[in-house]
Design a protein around this nucleic acid. Structure first.
Lengths: 249, 249
DNA sequence: CGAGTACTTGAGTCCGTTCAATCCCAGTGG
DNA sequence: CCACTGGGATTGAACGGACTCAAGTACTCG
């Protein structure tokens, strides 16, 4: 149940993210640089904390495989899940730019992560403006997602919020190449859904039951099967994110 | 009540932000580049929309003077305020990186903005990695703030939320050089506070009244006077942001 | 002086909470 | 093989925080 550095990491030339067509391919030049920037790989088991709030980790990561989530907690244990992380996402950027992490990241499923050295960030900006631009792109996209979540938690009803979350996660899973357009299995517990939506577990359960009665989702095997993503998005009054190709590092 | 391009903009050498000591000074080299990157100035009256959701503006801006706020709305008019913008903040970055803006920005007080051309962003990354790094720093900081807002709206009680917001805005005003440590005047209406906290106006009013009874704030002249910022932060269980010097563009 | 906006306040309702059981299932150990 | 354990899901009941509705005050501005 511990994380471990993988002895023989994948070569960038056979990076699993290369095969996902939502990602913009790297040029040879870019790939070579990223290969030199990569310092290793990390594997995590479900439930493990990859990054801890307050830490000033020397690393940042790109998800190669698996699901995780970012969250913050108050002193008394109240927890808010901020976003989910999927293959292609970068985590730990805040720790690299600011003084320390303001949130934690836990693994939801077994994960594999690509490790980079925070200390080399500035030289990346100097030597590869294109990749630096991509990192800023990713940061802007994260901000855009947080904006929508905030709108959701602040102004949508419980049912709309739940519908939004399921449609959102479906969309992200499709774009990360781990689900198909018509359905998806999301490895989340109702407890996590509650902590994402800002609701209690009890009311989350009752709300999800309504979505299940509508046949929009089905709950099984400790997770959520999304059956009608479009209907969910419509119910939530949510426009899915852009489908343009996105960069990854 | 209209925006207008200012005919004779301030020279960067006498930028009002230079005198605020929370900001890291530019080198001569940086200042010269920014001066060439700056394409003009814009002035806005209160209530004016500076940037509109969905737009793909050719500009991005740095606030030189005044308050504004970022927000999103649902089709039926429900509004969520995402964050406030103060001198030194950059707005429109999303429009520059992604396809279009996912939120709007309105002026709260008279504002003066420094205008940059979106089309020159990439060359900025190529020619001035240090400034590119600063832009990414600003984006990370915005993300960090949104994380805290999300925690607030999702998991804090109404009273904690209100206390957090007032402490947060006080902190930001101090850091932007427009308020002192012991108190501040915030030019926000209760309607805006409600739309920031995800509460109704009525309940926001009753909650603010409690903070006023505690003598933590006082409401007057269409705004909030923060009297005891530390007590507010403590009530909200909030650790103020870093006090390290921050960059600006 | 009328109109508009912001703020206040009370009353009643409802959405979402807490408390408290219960069920189901997977894993563990005797 | 089965009792025991623990996490997740489910349900009912009662409470309460936050909502809506509805008035009323205070102030600014034309």
């Amino acid at each position: 149940m511990d994380s471990r550095i993988i002895a023989s990491p994948t070569k960038c030339s056979s990076c699993p993210l290369k095969t996902i067509n939502a990602f913009r391919p790297h040029t040879t030049n870019e790939e070579n640089f990223i290969a030199s920037f990569k310092s290793g790989e990390l594997s995590c088991e479900p439930g493990m904390t990859v990054i801890e709030e307050g830490a000033h980790s020397p690393h940042l990561y790109t998800i190669l495989e698996g699901w995780g989530f970012r969250y913050k907690t108050l002193e008394d244990g109240r927890r808010q899940i901020l976003n989910y992380v999927l293959p292609g996402d970068m985590i730990g950027l805040q720790g690299a730019m600011l003084e320390h992490m303001d949130h934690s990241v836990d693994a939801l499923t077994p994960m594999r992560l690509c490790v980079f050295e925070r200390s080399r960030m500035f030289s990346l900006f100097e030597k590869h403006p294109g990749i630096a631009f991509d990192i800023t792109w990713l940061a802007s996209r994260e901000e855009s997602i947080l904006d929508e979540h905030l709108l959701s938690v602040g102004r949508r009803t419980a049912l709309e919020r739940a519908a939004y979350l399921m449609a959102f996660l479906h969309h992200r899973a499709v774009r990360a190449g781990i689900a198909c357009e018509s359905s998806a299995f999301l490895p989340v517990t109702q407890n996590m859904v509650a902590d994402t939506l800002g609701l209690s577990i009890v009311h989350t359960n009752k709300t999800l039951k309504k979505l299940a009665t509508l046949q929009f989702i089905r709950w099984r095997d400790r997770g959520c099967e999304v059956l009608r993503p479009k209907a969910l998005a419509e119910l939530a009054k949510w426009d899915p994110l852009s489908r343009q190709e996105r960069p990854y590092i």
